[in-house]
Design a protein around this nucleic acid. Sequence first.
DNA 1: TCAATAGTGTCTATCAGACAGTATGAA
DNA 2: TTCATACTGTCTGATAGACACTATTGA
Lengths: 263, 263
Amino acid sequence: MGKYKDEKEMLENYSSNKYVTPDGYTSDIAVFTIELRYLEEHKPPVANLKLMLIQRSEVDAEGEPNIEGGKWALPGGFVKPHETARMAAIRELQEETSVKNIHLHHFGVYDDPGRDKRGWIISNAFYAIVTEDYLLERKAAYDAQNVELFTWEEVQKLQLAFDHQKIIADAFKMIKKDILQTTVAKEFLPKEFTLSELRSVLLLVTNDPGIVNDSSFVRDAPKYPFLEVVKDAKGKNKTTTRTAKRSTRLFRYKEFEPINSIY
Amino acid sequence: MGKYKDEKEMLENYSSNKYVTPDGYTSDIAVFTIELRYLEEHKPPVANLKLMLIQRSEVDAEGEPNIEGGKWALPGGFVKPHETARMAAIRELQEETSVKNIHLHHFGVYDDPGRDKRGWIISNAFYAIVTEDYLLERKAAYDAQNVELFTWEEVQKLQLAFDHQKIIADAFKMIKKDILQTTVAKEFLPKEFTLSELRSVLLLVTNDPGIVNDSSFVRDAPKYPFLEVVKDAKGKNKTTTRTAKRSTRLFRYKEFEPINSIY
DNA sequence: TCAATAGTGTCTATCAGACAGTATGAA
DNA sequence: TTCATACTGTCTGATAGACACTATTGA
């Protein structure tokens, strides 16, 4: 028989000192936006996939030199006790961009020993999708130098903090895959959108002829099981003229995720 | 100016005591196997997706009552410093099943506060795929009571340790999705396999008519861009009679992962 | 021979890609 | 009227699902 009489007593005597434990548990968030630029009236938008980065300050709150100061990095921070990594990511996003109710997707854990000079620090990587207006609004509130949107090509040229170059490469890979294989594209679009708007998002990540050819796309898209045309009270198709002079149908996503087999 | 003259000095004074840190960082592995049972000679096998669980001992090495003792659980354990969660998973798998070079896929992080009574303990969940013979061999070496293979239906009836019920539910969901959307099915099959063997794996996770209908499947499968027929030295199709009296073609996977769009 | 699995042939409806052509409405 | 975008029509070849049929071989 052991020295504890039951599990309760055993738990009270449990100490994490028995094990070496991590020095920190963090969440980093790759905040994506697709700029849907309506360059001219009554024209479909031009799309651009961009990532938000912040420039780390040279000194911390106490005036000490900041770790990886001056470099560009993903927003994020330490997970507090009684929080999950996801909760921390949501909190950090609110603190840093005042964005709520956002699509947050966990896509990896980064725990290479040596990824952070401060010690054994584990990062949970999420990507978030934010509409452009949120970020533009928010950017004004910041020191303009500190927050910037970058395309993948631009990111590659930057000096990034920690292993964020790797995290960001994975984030772009994942989001491009997810746009094609899930219905996340909806997070980049208004609730009700035209087919040309959807198409401009998809063209960022594929050159499939069925999407490149606009008449094939408009023929097939209304049959997708996860899309539906928006009707008004009288049962007529709801339309807009923001992408063309001729009024065009609006679509929305249904609440359901298809799974597409490779076989 | 701060009290440290450079980053080096600052790092030397960095202490993780500034933050509350996790009490443990672990990896848990959902070890799957597909029993391909060749019930009769010259017949296609019957497939069954099973998960390996271990029964936690009532007392630990020191004779103390073990946390969640007696319950069934995923194999796994603490990540050591200078290890990644993946390295720990590989190590635990070797220690517990002596299995090497196995397909390991990270599919989630479980960090709900309160998921482990011992404190703030984070688990990285992986699924692994192991051929049946590995496990059968290994099972003999264990106390027979301790290791068992379970189907999803069987798992649901068990009392499981920690939040392993949730992790396992996610694991089954993920592996079923991955079998259809990636080429992991190959991990369940011999290097060279017949179409009926592949079909019996796929039938576990789909009832798509193109796979259910055997003649449609054999017509289309040779055209899949990630499959190829195995040729012998003379350029003739390599065959086997393990699934039929008539000799049948062998296939193998090519080194490439297709991505299938829902659009 | 029969039974069981592998594989082929064929029919029909649908679909994909290409592209021509029509509809609409602001300028 | 022109032009750009939103659609519709149509042609052709490929594909999907269904299912009948042939091939092979051990028992």
